[in-house]
Nucleic acid binder design. Structure first.
Length: 286
DNA sequence: AAGCGTGTCAACCGCATCCCA
DNA sequence: GTGGGATGCGGTTGACACGCT
């Protein structure tokens, strides 16, 4: 298709953001809310591309972002969701409150991808000429990784049928950031919003059936619904400088192991139901 | 201590899709 | 119905940190 770049890039700053730029962006969004990214830099006094501003906000400055290491529970959920959804990072992120698609993508590529590769190698050693299961992505090069079915995390989900629908944009819920900082209302994490008018792929239909898991998984999930999220004492400097809590110091919420299992079971059941329906439709067509 | 290799992750880029005039 | 601007998504890049030799 092709289209003109979003910004002329002439006279625009690139590279790492400075604290001053962050301050400008945060203050502007707090005052005016998210959106209108194209005009935002000019209005906020930033020499940045609108896309860059959006990315900085979505991936780093949003007050509801949870920083720190991915917990084992989160990792487990990422792996399971990846086995079901493939590289649809925004959908996966939508099920991990406070985590961004970029963060999950990076985590997968640097941590889980490697582990997966090792698992795959072990599987191949253990099952010579083995199963017809779809093998996971070859991540020796990222280009190979692209467009490959991804599945097979250990034995647990070895036989899971993987749908890898074409990546597509889905509409977020209406956002008015200055009214609410609800973590699930971010662009990258509201993939299941009710604004979907386009063609939803199979999995999104499945996912639509699932309840919003945030409050189920994370105790005190309502904690970040206020304009000021829970802060650690160490973030006091950031607060005084920026007027918002330092996302780096936000207190992470505990997770529930059994709830994760329950979620996964729900996915499996819904997939089964979906597959049954597909078979039924196919039989009618024959 | 210095050089090199590797891992991590913030940021960029191109494209798909939405949305509105 | 259509064209173009706005936005979102996933892949990729590159700077920096860290460990090893």
């Amino acid at each position: 298709m092709g289209r003109a770049p979003c910004c002329s890039n002439v006279g625009l700053q690139k590279g790492p953001w400075t604290a001053k730029e962050d301050t400008l962006l945060i203050n502007y969004i707090r005052a005016h809310g998210e959106g209108h990214w194209r005009s935002l830099p000019k209005k906020a006094g930033l020499l940045r591309c609108g896309k860059s501003c959006r990315l900085r906000w979505m991936n780093y400055l949003r007050p509801d972002i949870k920083r720190g290491n991915i917990t084992p529970d989160e990792e487990d959920l990422i792996i399971r969701l990846h086995s079901l959804l493939g590289n649809r990072w925004s959908l996966i992120a939508g099920r991990l409150p406070g985590r961004t698609d970029n963060e999950i993508k990076n985590y997968w590529n640097s941590h889980l991808g490697k582990r997966f590769k090792i698992n795959t190698r072990n599987d191949q050693n253990n099952q010579k000429g083995g199963s017809a299961c779809v093998r996971g992505p070859k991540i020796s090069t990222q280009k190979n990784y692209k467009n490959q079915d991804s599945t097979a995390y250990g034995e647990k989900i070895m036989t899971t049928k993987v749908h890898l629908p074409k990546a597509m944009r889905v509409s977020p819920l209406p956002i008015t950031r200055n009214n609410s900082t609800d973590g699930m209302a971010s662009g990258s994490s509201t993939s299941l919003g009710d604004g979907n008018k386009g063609v939803l792929d199979d999995h999104e239909e499945v996912l639509k059936c699932l309840p919003d898991l945030r409050d189920d998984i994370f105790e005190g999930g309502e904690a970040n619904h206020d304009d000021q999220p829970a802060c650690d004492r160490d973030s006091a400097d950031f607060v005084s400088n920026y007027g918002v809590c330092d996302p780096l110091y936000q207190i992470s919420e505990p997770t529930k192991d059994d709830m994760l299992d329950k979620i996964y079971e729900e996915y499996q059941q819904l997939l089964k139901a979906e597959n049954s329906l597909d078979s039924f439709v196919d039989s009618l067509l024959i």
